[in-house]
Nucleic acid binder design. Structure first.
Lengths: 238, 238
DNA sequence: GACTGTCAAATGATCGATTATTTTTCGATG
DNA sequence: CATCGAAAAATAATCGATCATTTGACAGTC
């Protein structure tokens, strides 16, 4: 009988290492475990009620993803976040996603446009915050959000570009969560719609510009929190 | 003393898992172990004379790097190579590295130019093939080659872009080795020099164009081998 | 002869004990 | 009082045994 967690219905198929990996990844992405903090292997074993091997394997995978950093014989720590890194990341995303979006529009596949429209529609229909009152995020919205951004660049014709774009998206996710935890509230005008509309209207430069602004504005929001140390009340989940 | 390389000097510091990782990675990059082949864990334990844990950890890291693919409960296999993937990869590299080179030139830092000049100089002074007669590759040249390409994009002002460029470089390395193993011989005119010269001369479009051609020409070479199955006499190292 | 279900062998995954390394403690010394 | 060094504690890394899953062989059925 597969364990306590059973995060999803299809438990039993996954490997323990995969379960730990998924969960830990989530905790890091949502900044439930603070950036820079040390990851004690035994504590993790206890938390997930598994042995050393799965934890170690999960950490190894995460370290290749740059979410945790590993130093030989000195264990694992959650990769740090910094304003400099955020700026860097934002610039890279503007450059790469901008290019991918441009290529997508120039390719102009009908299927791409349809998928983009669809993913926007779904995003707009998904509530931004959890159905219940409190929680800091709605996983369903996150999913829809990721899908929308994926759809934007999905017409570029290169799996590698899409993969890279996805990596950068995930890296940015940590900062977004940080902003939310810090209480930064976004002006709730929907920035995604105009991007989608410009893309479908083939206004290449305009769409790319809107996308860049979108990234930059988000980054600005995060910076407010990064600069205000009091807001980062990170909590380790029990 | 900042010791850039010291590939083996600092032995004893490394962890077994890291040693296995490095070695296995090398074997995969050089196509010493064929693409698509299964990686039997116990065989690897024997080959490296270590226990299960280090091997497993090494494989986990490699799987996050897309060099091996892992399926839960079904073990690890070397990631496949294909012409389609090569085309995709080449396109992504032209796009990303081209952009990074453009940004580097436009930033126009003196330090970047000097580093580029220097890395080209070193590359040109490094023998392409092993000092002894036979071996299929010279690790020193590879190192210099990687440094040159890294230097090209190093002025773009984004660590993330550099990292991504590096990832793509490594992915392409497998194909380059495949070409060499297949006996594809490159016309030995130095394609790197004109790229460097154009970059230093601030001929932006020209330099970017030369870089793209460089990638595409290399890809064409690889394709010859990919299409000729007889040439892929891959050998498992003892 | 092809299909299907069962069992055995092979292989992957996990655990807990053991070993190696780093970090901390604490006392002696200048 | 700061510094150094040795011993002790903490923690990471590794191993080999054990458990779980998949794969392959084989017999029985239609």
């Amino acid at each position: 009988m597969p364990s306590l967690i059973t995060s999803s219905a299809k438990a039993g198929k996954e490997t323990l290492a995969s379960v730990v990996y998924d969960q830990l990844r989530q905790d890091i992405l949502t900044v439930a475990v603070p950036a820079g903090s040390k990851l004690n292997i035994r504590e993790l074993c206890e938390r997930f009620s598994v042995g050393l091997s799965p934890v170690r394997e999960a950490l190894s995978r995460l370290s290749m993803e740059k979410l945790v950093s590993q130093v030989d014989h000195r264990g694992f720590t959650v990769a740090p976040l910094s304003e400099a890194d955020l700026d860097d990341l934002t610039r890279a995303r503007c450059a790469i996603d901008g290019m991918a979006l441009r290529q997508s529009m120039e390719a102009g596949e009908a299927a791409w446009e349809e998928q983009l429209l669809l993913s926007y529609h779904r995003l707009s229909r998904t509530p931004r915050f959890g159905a219940e009152g409190s929680p800091t995020r709605s996983p369903i919205w996150e999913e829809a959000h990721r899908n929308f951004h994926r759809a934007l660049v999905a017409g570029c014709g290169s799996r590698w570009l899409e993969t890279v774009s996805g990596q950068l998206f995930e890296a940015a996710e940590r900062y977004r969560h940080l902003a939310r935890r810090g209480g930064a509230t976004r002006v709730n005008d929907d920035e995604h719609r105009p991007i989608m509309e410009a893309a479908l209207a083939h206004e290449v430069d305009h769409a790319v510009d809107l996308l860049s602004r979108h990234y930059e504005r988000t980054a600005d929001l995060v910076k407010l929190v990064l600069r205000d140390p009091g807001a980062t009340k990170t909590v380790v989940p029990k």
